[in-house]
Design a protein around this nucleic acid. Structure first.
Lengths: 352, 352
DNA sequence: CTGTTAGCGCTTTCAA
DNA sequence: TTGAAAGCGCTAACAG
């Protein structure tokens, strides 16, 4: 397993074992057309010599690399880390290697990443997050070789039902939002504000789901305010807090946990109490959601599983030639302090 | 850039352009031994045909893959995400692809990861975090092809000065700890406890640095308590808090930010106030350190830069054949609420 | 300046 | 059951 130096080749093993290269190949690849004692001997010698097959040579002749490409917009997001972890883990389990690229939220970088995947002949590609232009991806990669994780199915033209044979792994945000809204209504909240995130699919999907959930609950969706949360930074935070103080919503549904934490920080700086004055909720259930003060109510996403499913879908498509359509993984409401009224609510019978 | 289908080869381009394959190769690789009009024509045709070079074939003949392996113990750690991001970004900038593997803190997985890197003929390897057995890595990979990020230089036999020609990127924890201790002493803290992390290099290095800093400050290092923080989980948290309540330290220096947040959560559950009753500090300055309540005092590590340096060291070694020895990147003390006494301390003239 | 030739390390027909 | 031969797609001498 020495990485540089002259690597020992299959040739070397063959000579050492006094057999032909083809025999070595067969012995090492579980080909049954070979004598069992020869196989054992060859395997032994190969191990002895520290032989490691050259993947490049292998890929060249096999016309398959057992390599998966993973395009991540931002490794810094905890939730992305979880997806990456699941993706990598499952890929390894299936004997695949993953090469990764960072999109940095720039279409140009993204394009270059796709080219890298192509050069390396990746057998499949996963694209994480609401990438800027999914159509661009589809233009250069065969649909049966991509799966979008947490992206919107581009076939929809923006948010209807999904039915195209296009790989897409999403959490069931609709269900999550319903549970969230039901919980908030149950604890007596009425004036909601959706603090939206950056312009990615997830953010708009969640926003729309809130409107729907509110309507279905018989609440007046006009009670829902929208705030462009992506603009909240240390500089603009006070302005945001002021706006909350002025409009007095009693529940802030944030695009994701990170944003929720930023929001809570801004509110605290302004002296607005959570959950007393206003409830705050997030999305994802990153590890820090359980550690904030107050602890954050959120909708847990099985992020690692989503990464795993992405791999499974890709491998399925590689095998069968067709990509199974979108899949929705279940989410779970996690009620914590940030949405529970300090005085036990009348019927707060919700188990965490 | 189509990913499956029969890819267009250099051969195809050659035929289309009515030149030999070598000419195409030269035209596309910036070889100067070629007529400029021929080059232009070939490049045009290649682009027209959507030609993408086959990296496997290229690597095979060039005996270099322009690929770097990155072994990460846990993608879920925010700090790892930052390192990965910097690593990937710099690698891409330099025309390298990175293949990644997840160690999951298991030596066996780690070994398999190294083998994957070898199969793919990675030109260099970076190992992140205090891996269980760095010696194992060195046994199978040439020293000039690895760099350990955040690991301990294994040549030291555990923590002296470092001088071996062995790639190692570390933050200057010593300086960070000194600043941290100085700050805590300045705000009147005296009874310190180091809440240690998992058994990785960083944790022990920081622990030792604290003892040293305490001694140098003329404080009695015997005032330093040690607590095995890695054992703190939701179940054991109360016990930990009880212990703090009993022994009454006035400063808890935690291995890293995440642990510090866990600690603060445990203390809050027990009614111990931070920083009033006890100061809490972290290490890393992950994004959430600035969002906690109270906001966390910590030592910022330029994690992304560390990833970048790792790439640079690797490329340097690939070019020159020798790995430059360890490098220490500077850190910065970030003072926030969790260590500042509510009443302004007498001489708290520390700028954040 | 351009073409010809010979592999890089591996798998796989096709014979023996 | 094993070996010989051909070739995956590309680059790098070496001629011309």
């Amino acid at each position: 397993v020495n990485i540089n130096a002259r690597r020992v080749t299959l040739q070397d093993v063959a000579e050492d074992a006094r057999v032909s290269p083809s025999t070595v190949s067969r012995a090492l690849n579980g080909n049954r057309r070979i004598g069992s004692e020869t196989r054992a001997r060859v395997q032994y010698i190969a191990a002895q010599l520290g032989y490691v097959p050259n993947q490049a040579a292998r890929s060249l002749v096999l016309r398959a690399t057992r390599t998966l490409g993973l395009l991540v917009p931002d490794f810094t997001e905890p939730i992305h880390g979880q997806v990456v972890s699941g993706f990598q883990g499952e890929a390894a389990l299936q004997g695949y290697t993953v090469i990764m690229a960072n999109g940095f939220d720039e279409p140009e970088r993204e394009a270059r990443a796709l080219e890298v995947f192509a050069r390396h002949q990746a057998d499949g590609i996963a694209v994480l997050g609401g990438v800027l232009d999914q159509r661009q991806v589809l233009a250069s990669v065969h649909p049966s070789r991509v799966v979008f994780v947490d992206g919107e199915n581009p076939a929809l033209g923006g948010g209807g039902t999904e039915d195209l044979p296009l790989g897409c792994v999403r959490a069931d945000d609709g269900a999550g939002v319903e549970a969230l809204v039901a919980h908030l209504l149950e604890v007596g909240r009425r004036r909601f504000v959706y603090v939206a995130g950056p312009p990615v699919a997830s953010s708009s999907i969640r926003g729309k789901a809130i409107v729907r959930a509110l309507t279905q609950s018989g609440a007046d969706p006009r009670d829902l305010g929208i705030y462009a949360g992506e603009r909240i930074d240390p500089a603009s935070a006070p302005a945001f807090a002021d706006e909350v103080a002025a409009s007095r919503p009693d529940a802030l549904l944030c695009y994701d946990d990170k944003l929720a934490l930023v929001v809570m920080d801004a509110l605290r700086a302004r002296g607005i109490r959570v959950p007393d004055d206003v409830a705050v909720t997030g999305f994802d259930d990153i590890p820090f959601a359980a550690l904030s003060n107050p602890r954050l109510t959120t909708v847990a996403q099985p992020a690692a599983d989503m990464g795993r499913y992405a791999v499974l879908m890709l491998l399925g498509a590689i095998e069968t030639g067709v990509m199974r359509a979108s899949i929705h993984v279940p989410v779970q409401l996690v009620v914590r302090e940030s949405s529970t009224t300090p005085q036990p609510a009348r019927e707060a019978v919700r188990r965490d």
